[in-house]
């Protein structure tokens, strides 16, 4: 089967943005499985990956239902190419070292937690149900990655240096979390999605609390990278999808 073209109504597009971000981030976390700094962390990172994968599946299933073209979660995950992916750029950056993985997880979950909290009151009942489950998962993700951020920021000289490097790389990708385009505004107006501007105070508060304890500086908001939510990605996503979609592309139309 060739690459599919999804009819992206504002709701479908919004669901794909959330699903893609969860799937791509989950994929990056799953790359640690068997390679983590200690066994306890192999298990912890796999748990994070499984939570996000579960969220992605629920969101894809709902997106497919809304689109009404008879597609499945796997069609959406495996048969769209990079330009059709709608995840935020931060999620797709390569795995990096443990500092990078932890900090990315923290910055994303510090956003996801207030997002799902607000989305649990969505006018869209199905999204609200997905959000109610995701909210609890995100709360634990903030706790796990937040506690590690504190330990690595205020650990050894090396761990601190690695956290500062990760912070420098990741910060310019935080702006995309709070963008709102025409599709978003339509969903906000309909009471389906929360306005990202309303999530900022909670995100800032979490980041400040953890960074203060981690002795990490909150970087100034300079130039922010953007594009993932409209399909303009980094070079990394194409490679990730080439691996992830390998079997579906090499043996089209098979059941696995």
């Amino acid at each position: 089967m060739t690459t599919i073209a999804v009819a992206e109504t504002p709701l479908v597009l919004s669901l794909l943005r959330l699903a893609d971000t969860a799937l791509v981030h989950s994929h990056r976390l799953s790359e640690w499985c068997g390679h983590a700094p200690m066994i306890e962390e192999d298990l912890a990172l796999a748990n994070l990956a499984l939570d996000l994968l579960g969220q992605a599946r629920a969101l894809y299933a709902y997106a497919a239902e809304v689109e009404g073209a008879g597609r499945t979660e796997d069609d959406l995950a495996y048969l769209r190419d990079a330009p059709q992916y709608r995840n935020v750029l931060m999620a797709e950056l390569p795995r990096g070292d443990f500092a990078f993985t932890i900090l990315r997880g923290f910055l994303l979950s510090a956003w996801a937690h207030p997002f799902w909290q607000a989305a649990a009151r969505s006018a869209d009942a199905q999204l609200a149900a997905i959000a109610a489950k995701a909210e609890k998962e995100a709360a634990y993700h903030v706790r796990h990655t937040g506690e590690w951020t504190i330990r690595l920021g205020d650990g050894t000289e090396e761990s601190r240096r690695r956290m500062l490097t990760a912070l420098e790389t990741l910060w310019p990708y935080t702006g995309e979390l709070f963008e709102a385009d025409a599709a978003d505004r339509a969903m906000i107006a309909a009471g389906v999605l929360p306005d990202p501007a309303t999530l900022r105070p909670a995100w800032e508060a979490t980041v400040t609390r953890v960074f203060d304890e981690a002795l990490l500086p909150r970087p100034a908001d300079g130039w922010m990278q953007t594009g993932g939510r409209s399909g303009r990605h980094t070079e990394h996503l194409g490679h990730m999808l080439a691996v992830m979609q390998h079997l579906q592309r090499a043996y089209p139309g098979c059941t696995w």
């Binding site: 390679h35 983590a36 700094p37 200690m38 962390e41 070292d97 443990f98 330990r151 690595l152 650990g155 050894t156 090396e158 761990s159 690695r162």
Partner: peptide
Amino acid sequence: EGAWVREAA
């Protein structure tokens, strides 16, 4: 590669 993480903890 995990040694620095365990040391930091």
